[in-house]
Nucleic acid binder design. Structure first.
Length: 641
DNA sequence: CTTCTCACG
DNA sequence: ACGTACGTGAGAAGT
């Protein structure tokens, strides 16, 4: 047995590392004691990296611990060691893990402990930390990292285990990314830190629980978030099939396209299209005027500005308002192709599991407002105006892709929270909200432009923006925007009233917005106007999460693939896809405090991209299911027109 | 590491 | 009294 004494918060603690069968007997005795006392045991894993689903990934150690004692099981050295860890994971009824989805998926895939078995017994301290304070360090919060939480609440002198190990890796000629795979399993600091992490995890749990009680965050919300976390972990485990041949072709096409347009840019002296200083200098040299500046004072040359110079509208169609600037055009096209190639093409090409599936990370509780985020690859941010990227993602063989989204969910939630009579009436009557708004303000003869303005003002309300920004965003004259906002406030008095109230209540509560779900959202003192947005965005997120749980209760969890803010992407076998989509839509639809939240189910073909194809010919040419069902392609074209 | 840009809802 | 656009993840370039 290896034994490392250490100090945490001025108290002696001990890290034990079994080396053989006899040592494991002592471990088992310790585990039995923990079972009989009913203590919550902290658990953690050490692995070769973060790419849980990669074919080269390995589990190296499994740790268990309480406030004073940790056991580090180097499971990679023997089947017996792994079996002891598996036994402990099965027998321990109450565990705590920091960032549980990671370890749950590691143990599910690499230790044969099903997520469904272990998940319900785990309290995730990262979830508790988010419910206490969702702010990241850069936003003035403690953050959600175990290290930062412990420095704040347990022991400011506790070592930065991750950071220190990185330094050790560097000193041994390894990097942060390969060090966890290469460092020797008996490296003493590695083992000590592996043990300290569970001791710290064990100590942070009661601190966070007390804070939640103090703040008045309900146990119901804690349970809700744990269920959502587990359900998202099952989606992460399922992953999504990638059409690898298609992706390789896509990457190569985008590479060619980026090359052609960067060669065009080179003719104007721009050697790197992503170097904004080069681009702005070259444009000035061509006689263009650049007036907008970035926060740091540099000349701004973003997409909107380049589209103007290239005489293109936001759909990249010629506007014929000026002579197109060829450099602006080349930079735009080269940058887009380059970004799509690296951020989406290569991200989807690499990092797949052995079956060619992509397992994006679903962070079920991430943003300031509790919104989810998705990374590696960022599947929530794939281009939606064009089907070519999403075409790479496929339903399982014999299945079709389904998407069910909420209609104007944030506006509807705002109407409900604000109890805005007119708006609620429009929703109840099934009216298009932006048409209704335009008609209220400008009368039955309202134009498309009026509708767009009304919609923009609505967004401004949701975001807490003002006339200046809206005018800048839409390009509409300031006076016109101001008039529209005034008219909006006149026809929807409840919205302004609610906005004032939620800001007043947030100030009174110590700069905290409380959502209907009982979530506390700290507010920046100098951005109190964001209160409305926080309440609306966070509530919309809670609505989708409740819907996910309702779908699970209805036995539909196996069909889910990915949540996307106000939408669920799913799949179902061809023969029942239409029916499953309707059923998902029916269950997701709900009454939210007197306002109906409607859903819009859509069924595509074999690829996610098929949902974004507008013409039947494109569907039959580029999606295998539609190729075999051309009549359905024509029906889909009509439905999407 | 920061800045800028760009993809999404 | 007045006005404030919300939330993410990621790559490239430059310091």
């Amino acid at each position: 047995m290896k034994h490392f004494p250490h100090t945490v918060a001025g108290e002696a603690v001990s890290v034990q590392v079994p080396e053989d069968s006899r040592d494991l007997d002592a471990f088992r005795l310790w585990v039995r004691d923990r079972v009989s006392t009913g203590e919550i045991v902290a658990c953690d894993t050490e692995t070769t990296g973060l790419d849980t689903f990669s074919p080269t990934f390995r589990l190296r150690a499994v740790q268990f611990g309480t406030a004073y004692e940790a056991w580090v099981l180097p499971v990679e050295i023997s089947a017996e060691m792994l079996e002891a860890a598996r036994w402990a994971l099965r027998i321990l009824q109450r565990l705590t893990i920091h960032n549980a989805p990671y370890d749950l998926l590691v143990l599910d895939r690499h230790a044969g402990i099903p997520l469904e078995l272990l998940g319900p017994r785990v309290i995730d301290t990262r979830v508790l930390a988010h419910l206490c304070d969702p702010r990241q360090p850069q936003e003035g919060g403690v953050g959600l990292a175990l290290k930062a939480l412990c420095a704040e609440y347990v022991d400011p002198t506790a070592p930065d285990t991750q950071g220190d190990l990185t330094a050790i890796f560097n000193g041994m000629g390894m990097t942060k990314s390969n060090g966890f795979a290469k460092i020797h399993i008996w490296h003493e600091t590695y083992l000590l830190y592996a043990g300290l992490d569970v001791i710290l995890g064990s100590r942070i749990l009661p601190v966070l629980q007390r804070r939640l009680t103090k703040y008045g965050v309900s146990g119901r919300l804690v349970d809700f978030e744990h269920r959502v976390m587990r359900l998202c972990a099952t989606m992460e485990r399922r992953g999504m099939r990638v059409d690898q041949d298609y992706v390789r072709g896509l990457v190569s096409r985008l590479e060619d396209e980026a090359g052609i347009h960067s060669a065009r840019a080179l003719r104007y002296g721009v050697t790197s299209v992503n170097a904004t200083a080069q681009v702005s200098a070259a444009l000035l040299g061509m006689g263009e005027k650049l007036t907008q500046r970035t926060p740091s004072g540099a000349l701004k040359v973003d997409k909107a500005i380049l589209l103007d110079l290239a005489d293109l509208d936001d759909q990249w169609q010629p506007r014929e308002t000026r002579t197109p600037n060829p450099l602006a055009d080349a930079v735009l096209r080269s940058k887009r192709a380059g970004k799509w190639r690296t951020s989406y093409g290569i991200a989807l090409r690499d990092g797949l599991d052995s079956e060619g599936r992509s397992h994006c990370k679903i962070n079920s509780l991430q943003a300031r407002t509790a919104r989810m985020s998705i990374s590696n690859p960022p599947l929530q941010q794939l281009p939606s105006g064009d089907w070519t990227i999403r075409r790479a993602l496929m339903a399982d063989p014999g299945h079709r892709i389904i998407s069910v989204d909420y209609s104007a969910v944030e506006m509807r939630i705002l109407a409900s929270l604000a109890d805005e009579t007119q708006m609620k009436r429009a929703i109840a009557e099934g009216r298009d909200l932006h048409d209704f708004t335009a008609e209220l303000i400008w009368g039955p003869g309202f134009t498309k432009r009026h509708r767009k303005m009304g919609k923009g003002v609505g967004f401004g309300k949701v975001y807490g923006g003002g006339a200046t920004t809206l005018s800048r965003q839409t390009g509409a004259p300031l006076a016109e925007v101001q008039a529209a906002i005034a008219a909006y406030d006149r026809v929807y008095p409840g919205i302004k009233r609610y906005s004032r109230r939620v800001q007043r209540e947030a100030r009174a509560a110590g700069y905290v917005v409380w959502t209907p779900s009982g979530r506390r959202l700290p507010l920046d003192r100098d951005r109190v106007y964001a209160a409305t947005n926080y309440a609306v965005q966070s509530t919309a997120r809670d609505v989708l999460c409740q819907a996910l749980l309702d779908l699970e209760d209805a036995g539909l969890a196996d069909y889910m693939l990915l949540p996307v803010h106000d939408e669920l992407v799913a799949q179902a076998p061809e023969v029942e896809a239409e029916e499953i989509a309707r059923e998902i839509g029916r269950i997701m639809a709900m009454d939210f405090a007197g306002v109906q939240l409607d859903t819009d189910p859509d069924v595509g073909g074999a690829s996610w991209g098929s949902l974004y194809m507008k013409q039947a010919g494109v569907m039959t040419d580029h999606d295998s299911w539609y190729a075999a069902h051309p009549d359905a392609a024509h029906a889909a074209e009509l439905a999407r027109a």
